[in-house]
Design a binder for these strands. Structure first.
Lengths: 162, 162
DNA sequence: CTTTAACCTGAACCAAAGTTGAGGTCAACC
DNA sequence: GGTTGACCTCAACTTTGGTTCAGGTTAAAG
């Protein structure tokens, strides 16, 4: 183990916005944006420049992963807000807030799989039948909708010939 | 088989924008929008009102299904543009352009599944390790990127302690 | 022939997730 | 101590997929 070398960015205990950008792969403008939205925080130097704690790197990694999962920034921010403010989050903390994304991902994969299966049926018949595929019924709401425009939609398409 | 009754909207051979909205479940403003984008077309009456062919119903159904799959309108428009202009599209035509979405859906489901598996690992260790999970590496580009910011990102996070 | 519902256009507005640019300051190297 | 690169703020702009509103026309029903 060698002593930290302050000349090397990743050995310093605080990061400039440029360091954080380079190491997270996120642009400086995006980091500013996240900060405005309250997803990350910084202290300011006497010259008004941002300094980030190393922990912030992990927050940014979490933000990026969450975005890949398809979570909107506002929700990511809400999740980050549940992290303890008085200490550095532990592995357990990250585990807890990641779990929600995992469940979300499961649900969305299943939803897409169902959609794909329906699409397979519809490709098979080539008709895009609403009654058979329920493909144009975004959130499976048709069942509770009863008669009305939605039914007209089905009738309309069904009667649209080949 | 009874004769078409022009008093009933779905028996007329042309649809007003209101008819199309009611039967497709899409708002009038959205239909105007689709038309501006070239996804659907209409003829105009002497009074400048839109009249849609029945076939348009199927196009709108296709648009809605495609949106559920996650395809942007521009791409949907490009796909619709490959339909024959000189005749009413057949089941085979719809089958052809739906196939692309099916493949797309397959790819995205697999991508999300991989993401979920990685996330499971990362929840297990609680560290969001980039080197192990490649979770912050959006399009699996890291392999070809070589040294640079991307590598710095990995080094940076790996050195970020617990 | 009047009333009313449906239609028309164009412009403005919304959210999300940033980017870009202008104009100015800070800090580190030589 | 000057040059250069990194930093600062604020405002405006981008894209996608629309909605809402204002002001005016059409068409169908009574």
């Amino acid at each position: 183990m060698e002593a930290p070398n302050p000349a090397v960015p990743w050995d310093r205990d605080e990061l400039t916005v440029g360091d954080l950008a380079a190491r997270s792969g996120v642009s400086v403008s995006a980091l500013h944006f996240y900060e405005r939205k309250g997803l990350i925080t910084s202290r300011r130097t006497s010259g008004n420049q941002r300094r980030y704690r190393r922990e912030t790197l992990r927050r940014v990694a979490f933000i990026r992963v969450s975005q890949r999962v398809g979570i909107p920034l506002a929700d990511i921010g809400a999740a980050l807000a549940t992290l303890p403010g008085d200490r550095t989050p532990t592995a357990k903390d990250w585990r807890r807030i990641s779990q929600a994304w995992h469940d979300d991902l499961d649900a969305r994969i299943e939803q897409l799989s169902r959609l794909r299966d329906h699409l397979t049926d519809c490709i098979g018949c080539g008709c895009l039948s609403l009654r058979r595929c329920t493909l144009t019924n975004p959130h499976d709401e048709l069942a509770e909708a009863g008669p009305g425009p939605r039914t007209l939609l089905v009738e309309g398409l069904e009667s649209d010939g080949a």
